[in-house]
């Protein structure tokens, strides 16, 4: 079997005060596959994405574990080589499409710049590539969009631009961090459909971060459930909904009114389940030592 697109092996990270934000996280994304990473707010979903992309906050320290991008061990590379590898093979679809675009630069140069300066494409090639992608995300007036400043576009348009930009360089892996959360409910559905469409057309693997089980059901083949920095369950998506094994997953599903409705948000999870989880995590922390995670 060929190497996984992304393979995270027992990754642990701590804050300066010793608090653990990631607890021996293992997960993999196969080429062309969508893996959902689901969990409540503060579970560490964004941290995992940032760790993969090499942009963890300076206060967060990785103390254990490995990350392999298409079989290459990121930890074994020099910083410069790591940056180049990540830059060439990954992309991010961010949560907030406003702050993810530079407010003082026009969309066109912002999008082509990356292809030209990072991948060394010619200006013309980058330009036609960007136009092709804008067409794929169903932007009908590319001329206007390319000339606009970010604040002149709607949230949905900005997110389309970012999706186009993410796919433009043909990355192997895209990290999508709650890409629909900041959008209007009506726009969320379209954006989700677009991401799924482009993912299929380009065969890109996606690590799809969400707190929404409805979205998980719609877009992913695999799912990892995260609680307090720990993967409590991982499974095929269909399997997870049909037969959740972990009590926390069961509680999550039960707390979601209809998981087929992508716009229903999570309800509070049952107290006893949480108490059980806390005990489980405390026990794991007891036996955990860096290097033996």
């Amino acid at each position: 079997m060929s190497a996984a697109c992304l393979d995270i092996r027992s990754l642990s990270a701590v804050l300066p005060n010793g608090q653990r934000v990631l607890r021996s996280v293992s997960l993999s994304v196969q080429p062309g596959e969508v893996r959902a990473l689901v969990g409540e707010s503060g579970a560490g979903k964004t941290m995992i994405g940032k760790a993969v992309l090499g942009v963890l906050p300076t206060s967060v320290r990785v103390v254990d574990g490995d990350m392999l991008l298409e079989g290459e061990d990121l930890g074994a590379l020099q910083p410069k080589a790591r940056r180049n590898l990540i830059g060439a093979r990954t992309a991010l679809i961010p949560q907030d499409p406003l702050t993810a675009l530079n407010p003082s630069r026009r969309i066109g140069p912002q999008m082509t710049d990356r292809l030209v300066r990072i991948l060394g494409w010619s200006g013309e090639r980058a330009d036609s590539r960007i136009r092709q992608l804008l067409d794929e995300v169903q932007i009908r007036d590319p001329e206007r969009v390319l000339k606009s400043y970010p604040h002149e576009l709607s949230g949905g348009m900005r997110q389309r631009v970012l999706i186009a930009a993410a796919f433009a360089a043909e990355p192997r892996l895209i990290v999508a961090d709650e890409p629909t959360t900041a959008l209007d409910v009506t726009v969320q559905k379209q954006i989700l459909r677009l991401i799924a469409q482009l993912q299929r057309d380009h065969g890109t693997a996606i690590l799809f971060v969400t707190h929404d089980l409805g979205v998980v059901a719609k877009i992913s083949q695999k799912v990892s459930v995260l609680y307090a920095g720990k993967v409590v369950e991982e499974a095929d998506t269909a399997e997870l909904f049909a037969a959740p094994r972990h009590p926390y997953t069961r509680a999550l599903i039960a707390a979601t009114p209809r998981y087929t409705d992508p716009y229903a948000s999570l309800k509070p999870v049952d107290e006893t389940v949480l108490a059980g989880l806390a005990a489980e995590i405390a026990a794991a922390d007891q036996s955990w030592r860096p290097g033996h995670g």
Binding site: L53, G54, V55, R83, N84, I86, G87, A88, T90, A91, L92, P94, Q95, D96, T99, A100, L101, N102, P103, S104, R105, R114, R117, I118
Partner: peptide, 27 residues
């Protein structure tokens, strides 16, 4: 801002980001 993070992910150097991305916004 996230656009600075995106630029880092894309592989821009720190000084390049400071001059090309941040400076125009404080100009």
């Amino acid at each position: 801002m996230d656009y600075v993070e995106s630029a880092r992910i894309a592989g821009y150097g720190r000084i390049g980001i400071m001059l090309r991305e941040v400076l125009p916004n404080v100009l």
